[in-house]
Design a protein around this nucleic acid. Structure first.
Lengths: 231, 231
DNA sequence: GATCGCAAAAGTGCATACAATTAGCAGCGC
DNA sequence: GCGCTGCTAATTGTATGCACTTTTGCGATC
């Protein structure tokens, strides 16, 4: 293969890596993200790191203040609730859409995903959080609507960050059970049931969370980031 | 006043200017946006212009392809419909929220805005389109939820771009009438009626549009942009 | 007259350089 | 001990330079 394509934009790569690091709680709200350290970790110049930070700031995952080091955003409680209400509205659209169009192959893929989720090491917070989020992203992707998928994904990541700030340690079991109910409703093509299952699932996630007070420690950024840098 | 603050981030300034230029149809889908020409127009270097383009691309207003000149996005018909469905879902949330919380002062402000809209020169497409969009942004802002406001704004601009590609020349009168109905429902605190008025208004916008085939001409970018550069 | 090839021009992709701002810290007075 | 002051290191904000890619213009060729 030619040395031509830079994979697909290094900015996007860095954004994905940081998003995953945030959603998996390797990075916590308030963690600092200095441009040159980021650049060093990902093997790019500050120019690129800076663009990535700009994107993430637009997505609400990072806070940017002039002449200040970028930090992982710390959503307020109001923002967290707001995010989830928006998420519920958007994912209801997904459920409505999919209940009418979903194929048996897609159902199978979803069940496979849920099985993976069940098989994940329950001790590994990061894996179960990521899989739970991926389930929703997968659903959104199945609608075949790129814009809907984009917004659902964005808001799902933002929710993950909010949970990271306020949620109690993620509990995987209930998520799996509720994800199953959603797939069941989709399989039957029951629009109302699918939307209801989705809504009550997300509401339950909110109810289960919104408890723990935030914590604060200093850590080594490059060590945190190492596993997220694509080979 | 001190010579310190750069207003508030020049990237954001350029983004706003371009968003307005797009929504007012001074820029049409497919129009080229070369970095150095942009930089020249706004008095910044390519670095800054480039960052702005990155943001706008993330918002779906601009298309970016590697080594190619950035262009104003040309939404497909599917994307346009998708955008509007998302918009309807989000603005229904706005309507629900406001029907319960809106104050008499806010009602007055909305009626004032609608009056301005009625007073706008009907020949001026750009003014009436901008005012119509601003009405929705204003509503979203009144919820006091910054995240909801952000998504509604983004999707409203995207809708505007879609209409620019496919809509027939914007008709102001019906919009004003429908905006009035929304405010009426909000004033009565009737949640269901407000959401219904909002939904049917947006559906009507879609129905009225989605007709005209896109056109294509070459124009002078810096002349187009001149009125959008903040003093 | 149309087509192909190729070199110049235009444009992007990225790193680096430098100015400006902030953060950290030592020293000082109280 | 505590807070203020000024210095230095760290970090961001922006422009510029260079390599590379795409587009364009133009002449040769058929």
């Amino acid at each position: 293969m030619k040395p031509k394509k830079n994979v697909v934009d290094r900015v996007a790569q860095i954004c994905s890596a940081l998003r995953r690091a945030i959603i998996e709680r390797a990075l916590s709200p308030g963690d600092k993200l200095p441009e040159d350290q980021l650049g060093l970790s990902f093997g790019v110049s500050r120019t690129i790191a800076r663009q990535a930070l700009g994107q993430l700031a637009a997505e609400g995952l990072v806070n940017l203040r002039r002449n200040r080091i970028a930090v992982v955003a710390t959503p307020t409680v109001e923002e967290a609730r707001d995010t989830f209400e928006i998420r519920i509205a958007l994912e209801a659209v997904v459920a409505n859409c999919l209940a009418l169009t979903i194929t048996p192959e897609q159902i199978a893929e979803l069940r496979r995903h849920i099985a993976d989720q069940g098989a994940a090491d329950p001790a590994s917070q990061s894996a179960s959080i990521r899989l739970a989020t991926d389930f929703h992203v997968l659903l959104a992707g199945m609608t075949g609507r790129p814009i809907l998928e984009r917004y659902v994904t964005e808001v799902a990541y933002r929710s993950g960050l909010a949970l990271s700030a306020y949620g109690r340690p993620h509990s995987n079991d209930c998520a799996i059970e509720e994800h199953c109910q959603i797939v069941d409703a989709l399989e039957e093509g029951d629009v109302a049931a699918a939307a209801a299952a989705m809504t009550s699932h997300l509401s339950a996630v909110v109810d289960r969370a919104m408890i723990r007070p935030p914590q604060r420690t200093e850590r080594d950024l490059s060590a945190i980031l190492a596993p997220f840098i694509a080979g």
